[in-house]
Amino acid sequence: MKLSLFCVSLAIAQVTSFVSTGGNLGVRHSSSTSTVITSVLPGDDDWAGDVVSGGTIRGCSVQQVGESITDWIVTIDGVEADLGRFSEAIYKKITGDAKQQSFQGFRPGTIPPHLQPTYKAFAMDECARETVLEAMQQNNIRPFTDARNDFFIESVSVPPPKKKGGKKKKGGRKKKAMAAAEAPVVEEPESEPQWKTYETMKEAIDAGWIPGQSFSFVCKNVKGQKVLAPKDVQGAEPIMKPFDRL
């Protein structure tokens, strides 16, 4: 399955419009156009629109809700699914297109700073929804017509923001070298950074998530019909055979 991005003008128009549904920040998507592109990103000859490399997503689980045959919960492990690379690819594409536009009061090729959070939110939202669709396809679940827009994404887990290095004071190296020579060297194991979970994507972005970082999430209100896999119908014969011609 390949990522379908709207053409330049439509993509820029979409990311400036948001909706809030039940506390879940999302992007207002337009389904009235059939103009889509699946192109290789500039400067990235290895990426051809695939949600994941190899065409198979890992780290996804699909759970049936109660006795319903059309309601599902999808859980995505962002590290296993390589969502860091996918979200970065989307972000590069939409910001690259945005730099071709003219924003009043800014030089050509400059994106207004107040729009940066909007593009980050679009990249995360688009990445999550496309990943859920891919997980459904791999589990032989055919999504209903408007299922993509009705996804409810919650429990968004992200890694902690990267710490910025402080300015080094003059003479610091000599003092550290002298202290290291006098004191015994004791290597302490570095603890892995703890991920934090937020209720919504907006909270995760406000906490410091940026495109290129992975993220995990749970998607509810996933509507679709379970269908037979192609391998399960190979060689099957119809229940009623047509009458033989005389």
Rank of each mutant, 00 (worst) to 15 (best):
D44Y: 10
I239H: 13
K169V: 10
T21W: 05
S155G: 00
T56Q: 10
N139Q: 11
C219V: 15
S4D: 01
K202P: 00
K241R: 14
S17A: 07
A123T: 07
G105S: 03
E188K: 11
F151T: 03
M136G: 00
D97I: 05
L246R: 15
S53Q: 09
K163P: 02
T145C: 00
R107W: 03
W195H: 08
K202L: 13
C127Q: 01
V222R: 09
Q225A: 15
F215Q: 09
A180Q: 13
V52G: 05
R129N: 04
S20N: 14
G109W: 05
Q100M: 09
S20R: 09
L25E: 11
V40Y: 00
D46Q: 06
T38Y: 00
S32Y: 04
T33V: 06
M136E: 05
K196Y: 05
K223D: 14
G78Q: 02
L41F: 06
V185T: 14
E130F: 12
P112N: 01
L83C: 07
G212L: 06
K2M: 07
P143N: 00
A89R: 11
N221C: 12
V186L: 14
K168T: 12
V218Y: 03
P184I: 10
K120C: 08
K170H: 02
E188Y: 06
G43C: 03
L25I: 06
G172W: 12
I73M: 08
G43T: 03
A11Q: 09
V65S: 03
S61Y: 02
P238R: 14
F151N: 03
G22S: 10
R142H: 09
E192F: 10
C7N: 03
D71V: 07
